[in-house]
């Protein structure tokens, strides 16, 4: 007797397969590569600590995107007077958060701060 799979069963099996594959990909991959990844992160952290690095090497085309956290609002214009932002990586990032918040460590001249 030939076994005929109903269309609904076939689709439900396909869906279950997709969910299992996604779960396996997410957890299985993590489990296999976790040790190696942790090692790489630890190596990178050690290097960051030893050298005092502040930024990731994500965009090397402009100095203010290479060291993104160290840039200020004038950085794109410092190359020459009409140096408008023109590097593609500038469209991936926003100005560092501390430039847009109040935490610019401005000093209240009336306050007395102990040394």
């Amino acid at each position: 007797m030939a076994f005929a799979l109903r269309k609904s069963d076939a689709w439900l099996l396909f869906l279950a397969g997709c969910i299992i594959l996604l779960a396996l990909a997410a957890n299985g991959y993590s489990a296999i590569h976790q040790k190696k990844h942790q090692q790489q992160i630890m190596n990178a952290r050690r290097l960051v600590g030893r050298l005092g690095l502040t930024d990731l090497c994500l965009f090397t085309e402009a100095r203010y995107t290479r060291h993104w956290s160290q840039a200020d609002l004038h950085a794109p214009f410092q190359d020459h007077p009409l140096s408008l932002p023109h590097f593609p990586s500038e469209s991936h990032v926003r100005p560092p958060i501390h430039l847009k918040t109040v935490s610019r460590h401005e000093v209240d001249s009336t306050a007395k701060i102990l040394p």
């Binding site: 991936h92 990032v93 926003r94 560092p96 958060i97 501390h98 460590h105």
Partner: peptide
């Protein structure tokens, strides 16, 4: 101009967020 690590971490925690231009 002092730049704090907490600010750097917050800056990178927002990298490629939905408000970044290309995204």
């Amino acid at each position: 101009r002092p730049i704090l690590k907490s600010e750097i971490l917050r800056t990178y925690a927002a990298v490629f967020d939905w408000r970044s231009g290309y995204v």
